[in-house]
Structures are given as C-alpha cells and as structure tokens.
Design a protein around this nucleic acid. Sequence first.
DNA 1: TGCCAGGCCCTCTTTAGGGCCTT
Length: 203
Amino acid sequence: MKLANTVVILDFETTGLSPDNGDRAIEIGAVRIENGQITDRFQELMNPGRRINSFIEDYTGITNNMLKTVSSCADVMTRFHQFIGDDNLVAHNASFDKRFLDAEFKRLNLDYSGSFACSLLVARRIYQQAPDHKLGTLVRYKGLDAKGDFHRALFDAEMTTKLWLIMLEDMSERYNLAQVSFDMITKLSKKSKSSIGAFLNAQ
DNA sequence: TGCCAGGCCCTCTTTAGGGCCTT
C-alpha cells in the first residue's frame, strides 16, 4: 500500500471547549507522517495568560505551576505555524482542534493552506461495530500499543497517528485499494455509513 | 443575574431533539 500524502496529525489541550467563550490552547502536540512513517514531532506547553481550572488540571495533568515558566501562546503557535507548513492536517474530532487552531492563528494574523481530515468521522464509518469512537476506546479496540498518558497532546497525537495508519491499512485491505489518498478519505468522511462500501469499491 | 460549544449523525426527522466526541 502506498501512502503518498504527507500529513501532520495534531492534538490540542485547552482551557475548555470553546475559543468563542475565551478558551485558549495550553499544549500542542503533533506528528508528521510521510509515506506511512513518522518523520517529525512537535510538542510544547504554552501559557494562556490566565489560570486554568481544577477540572483541566485533573483532566490533562497539566498544572498552573507547569505553565508559569513556558512560552506564550503567541510564541508557540508561531513556531507551530512554521512546523505545519503547507501540509494537510488530521485530528480526532477535527472540528474541535480546527476551531482552536483557527482562533490562535487568527490572533497572530497567521493562515495555513492545508485541509483537515477527521479520524473520528472515518472511524465511525469503517469501525461501525466498535463500542464507541473515543480515541482511547479505538486504540484498545484495535489493540494498538499505548504506553503513556491520554489527554496529553503529543501522546494523543501519537495514538491518533497509530489509529490513522491502521485505518488506512484496513481500508486498503478491505477494499483492495493500492493507494488510500487524503482526498479519498475526506470524501469518504462525507458519505453516509451505508454508502461507504460502494464508494470504496468504486475507487 | 444568568448566560455557558459546535458539528456530525440518527431517528419516534426535515415546522426537532438528543447523543456522541473534543477540553
């Protein structure tokens, strides 16, 4: 199977669920894969300029003390902008990470040209029998090696990467595809569950 | 004081509601 596309798989930890309500990023983790191999990684904590609440401290393990001495969101996101370049992007529940990426970049007048794909939407289509489609559940469901802490940015990005690669492999095998392109996956994500078999068989 | 996310997707649907996912 050939995986021609280079993608950056990313994950944010944040102060909450909504940048429109003032929530900010506190950590970004990302993995670059080229031809199915990990070629680069990015992980940085960032200081959102205010205290984070105890729920987020407990949920992520990231404490206010840890954020005291780290770079500002502006500095980290500027470096992350350089890291992603023009690559396409993947995240688990991408609509969440895209909102924070867009909000943090907007504050810096930064733009990017890559498109987003969502591993959650793909998993809901090709693993319809999974107990649910949370990242941790899917990692266990597929028997992927998971040594580390969920809800930290780089670890979740690494787990999403493993899930992404096994999904490409499963699609390739199940539908006898020589190549699974990023474009094909984004199209698949918009198909109804009942029509994906016909869609992939037609590739 | 009272407000409190948003997109996807299913169904007892489309003049709507609620569960799933992300922090």
